[in-house]
């Protein structure tokens, strides 16, 4: 953990070297989700509601997933950029150091500019909560926290899994965007607006629905009984990250028997 902080501090120093770009990046990072939010707003302005969900409910949904995504992108960015690390051969460098590869990859990138994105999601989160007619009890707050933390786990798991694939092929990793960016795009609306099979996929295979839609029903007071089950559904994220880590270890072993 201490070493990770060291990594972060050194990356901060590097990024501070390019001041103009750093600020542009922060602004850009804050803008990206802002245009998406504007899109969302315009859509609701045009249509009023979608399948019984109001703008603020959708915004809450969007904020939770946006926050988890931004957090995991900030911390697990090294995995997101991993294929370039393999491509340039710099992964060799990590292998001759006596620390776990996961920690070193985590420490290889940390984008402070992503904080812009995080802040933006956070503002939307509070804004939508304040506009919604719900009473924030302690269990509801707890559920919200759990949603965000477990969302980070799922996205990080996806990043790790994608990065692992680049041990086999550096090409075609783009397709994993379907799950990361695609998952984020889909989960920003309540999953119930989609076709049934899509909802199922994002509940049982990649459990983004479990950290977002299902517990949100509880937070918004839309459940019919089984409250505890909705509350704790985000824990699926913990289950999800385990096979991703396993895949990583298999990948490292594979790299060492084929890389050049």
């Amino acid at each position: 953990m201490y070493l990770y902080l060291k990594y972060i501090s050194i990356l901060f120093k590097s990024q501070a070297q390019y001041r103009l770009s750093f600020w542009l990046l922060t602004v850009g990072q804050a803008l990206t989700p802002l245009t998406v939010l504007a899109g969302l707003y315009f859509m609701f302005a045009q249509f009023g509601q979608v399948k019984g969900w109001t703008f603020y409910e959708a915004a809450l949904c969007y904020a939770v997933i946006g926050l988890s995504y931004a957090l995991s992108e900030t911390f697990a960015r090294g995995f997101d950029m991993f294929s370039s690390l393999v491509g340039s051969g710099d992964f060799d460098r990590l292998l001759v150091r006596p620390r776990s590869t996961i920690l070193q990859v985590l420490g290889s990138k940390f984008e402070f500019a992503r904080l812009g994105r995080m802040l933006q999601s956070l503002i939307v989160l509070f804004w939508s909560l304040s506009k919604l007619p719900i009473e924030l009890t302690f269990p509801k707050l707890f559920t919200l926290m759990l949603m965000i933390v477990c969302g980070v786990l799922i996205f990080s798991g996806l990043f790790v899994a994608t990065a692992s694939l680049s041990f086999w092929t550096i090409q075609g990793i783009e397709v994993a965007n379907v799950f990361t960016d695609g998952g984020r795009e889909m989960a920003k609306y309540p999953l119930s607006i989609y076709e049934k099979w899509v909802t199922n996929f994002f509940t049982y295979v990649i459990p983004l629905g479990c950290v977002n839609y299902l517990p949100l029903l509880y937070v918004l007071g839309r459940t019919d009984g089984h409250q505890l089950r909705y509350m704790l559904s985000p824990l699926a994220g913990v289950v999800f990250i385990l096979p991703c880590l396993l895949l990583w270890h298999i990948g490292v072993r594979h790299y060492r028997s084929t890389g050049s």
């Binding site: 060799d92 292998l95 001759v96 072993r253 060492r256 028997s257 890389g259 050049s260």
Partner: peptide
């Protein structure tokens, strides 16, 4: 390649 084998990068 030999160096990489000896430094534990390649199996």
């Amino acid at each position: 390649t030999t160096i990489k084998v000896m430094s534990g990068i390649l199996v």
